[in-house]
Design a protein around this nucleic acid. Sequence first.
DNA 1: AAAAAATAGTTGCGCCCGCTACAAAAATGT
DNA 2: ACATTTTTGTAGCGGGCGCAACTATTTTTT
Lengths: 154, 154
Amino acid sequence: MCEHWFPEMGRWVSIFDRLMKMYYDRGLSEFEIGWGQQFYVEYLYTHPGATSQEMAERFRVDRATLTKTIKKLGEVGYIRVAGDEKDRRVKHLYLTEKAIPAAERIKTVHADFYETLSRDIPREELALTERTLQRMADNINQKVWHRMEEHHGK
Amino acid sequence: MCEHWFPEMGRWVSIFDRLMKMYYDRGLSEFEIGWGQQFYVEYLYTHPGATSQEMAERFRVDRATLTKTIKKLGEVGYIRVAGDEKDRRVKHLYLTEKAIPAAERIKTVHADFYETLSRDIPREELALTERTLQRMADNINQKVWHRMEEHHGK
DNA sequence: AAAAAATAGTTGCGCCCGCTACAAAAATGT
DNA sequence: ACATTTTTGTAGCGGGCGCAACTATTTTTT
């Protein structure tokens, strides 16, 4: 034992991620949104007035992607945009009334999803896994960022 | 302490997954493939003659997606297809000579990636995290499959 | 105060991926 | 043997995402 075991972290994260998207898309199929918008609706529910920049950092997502996500949320009438007074570049986002049922459904799906994935796994292992996942993501993030600075020259 | 802590497993998996794709795409930028093909090239390297079906199961990926991936690998000359003798539906896949450098690069990127993500994290925690990730993916997989059967009746 | 750099957000492009519907070839039932 | 069902692989569609290049507005330099 203690053979050179071949790490497959990436494979499992990839599989997990795809299954998760399916789970959420199915859970939200009655609404006009899916996986791509879900994180931001949930975030705006508890953080009204958040900006695109703020959410891009929180979810480590490309700003361009977020622009399109917000555009879609606007088209289905789930958010309202208000320009900042001081800085005319920034836009504050707020959920509309229409988004509330969806936001609540997202919370339900979120909870169901967690219950599903955690079946037969001890609480402590789940907590450790989540923490480790965060640490690994931070490690990769630093490396990816580093390279970006090299590319663009400092 | 011990407040009802809000699980964010999905957020971290999602972030990890996106960063991982970036990492691999950059590491493979000199070759004619990227994230989408990488898993299958690596697999065919050690499992010559594998079928689409076999890999779809291993990576829990949609068969239609794999068809396109294989098509692309064929277009850049990385794989050769051989029909099965007994069952004329199935196609066996083999890497070509041209794919070998890419396959070896993939192994390097894979190893570098693991080293990057595991910085400052104890071996045991990594091993536990990977196992837990697998168990969680299996849990979700079962639920998603279950629902599919309900949908299609039976 | 003018020039340069940083910051917030956008547009166009292409890759990756699942879904639905489909075709062809086994496998199974009667 | 023939009809039905299952299995393997495809085509078309649309969603989600990062990247490069861009605009508009601040902030920092000089």
